[in-house]
């Protein structure tokens, strides 16, 4: 069985907070890391591999600048078998449409996967568009936003917490699967895993390796255009009172009344 797991390298918004407890890895650069939500995808890919009967190869795939190799390496440290990174100057500024195009071509080049596993959203752009677009491009059943995943032979079952209902989605492999952070904590790379990762195969593709025309990707080819970005004025801290013998509730009620909420 072949599993391709997608790992995106994203700017680190909360480095010191999120990684204080993560003592096992000391390889995260200041500027980026494996999207936290993709760790859940790697974890599920590895669990499926561990449960499967036959041989399973897990390939971690990322598109991004050269540093994106860090995201792939982390997946290898966690236990993926091999890595692929697609990097090309022309890709910078690509939207979800172009990203999904390049990912689809890279997946085809890796081989015909039985399972493509992604995160529920990237932590930077966060549109959740890429998984659906990939399913469309690859013609795969789309099993997305899974909070619980079970595989048996070539069957997959996933729980999906929708807005109106909780559903069980079933499909036959090959499948595109996206998983949420409800699937369970991702493992930390062990020392052994970190050492082993150094010897695992890692390939780099350019756009021409994939037969993708540079004119189809990048900022200029995007199907949407950002016209303006504005930083929201930071919220200024308002009034803070300390509750003493019920004074807090009264003060809060006064505030809510002044704003016409009560």
């Amino acid at each position: 069985m072949n599993i391709v797991v997608l790992v995106k390298h994203v700017p680190d918004a909360t480095a010191d907070r999120r990684f204080e407890s993560d003592n096992t890895v000391d390889r995260v650069g200041v500027d980026g890391l494996l999207s936290e939500l993709d760790e859940y995808a790697v974890e599920q890919a590895l669990q499926i591999k561990e449960k499967a009967d036959g041989d399973v190869t897990v390939t971690a795939l990322s598109i991004g600048p050269e540093q994106a190799v860090d995201a792939v390496r982390k997946a290898l440290q966690m236990g993926a078998d091999q890595g692929v990174i697609v990097t090309d100057d022309a890709i910078a500024g690509s939207d979800a449409v172009a990203t999904s195009l390049v990912l689809a071509e890279a997946i085809k080049k890796i081989g015909s996967p039985d399972l493509v596993v992604t995160g529920m959203a990237s932590t930077d752009a966060g549109t959740s568009l890429v998984p659906a677009m990939l399913a469309e491009r690859l013609g795969l059943p789309q099993v997305t936003f899974a909070s619980v995943v079970e595989t048996q032979g070539d069957q997959i079952r996933a729980k999906r917490d929708g807005d109106a209902a909780t559903e069980v989605i079933g499909a036959t492999l090959p499948v595109l699967l996206s998983v949420t952070d409800q699937t369970g904590e991702a493992r930390y790379p062990s020392f052994k895993g970190i050492m082993a990762a150094k010897k695992k195969p890692m390939e780099t593709y350019s756009l021409s390796d994939l037969g993708v025309d540079a004119g189809q990707v990048g900022l200029d080819a995007a199907w949407t255009a950002v016209e303006e970005t504005t930083a929201r004025p930071p919220r200024t801290a308002g009034e803070i009172v300390t509750d003493e013998d019920g004074s807090g509730a009264t003060a809060l009620a006064e505030f809510l009344a002044s704003k016409k909420f009560i």
């Binding site: 801290a237 308002g238 807090g248 003060a251 505030f255």
Partner: peptide, 13 residues
């Protein structure tokens, strides 16, 4: 972030 905050125990406030 708050416009109004109460430092206190939610179970009494």
């Amino acid at each position: 972030l708050v416009d109004f905050g109460v430092v206190g125990d939610l179970h009494t406030v």
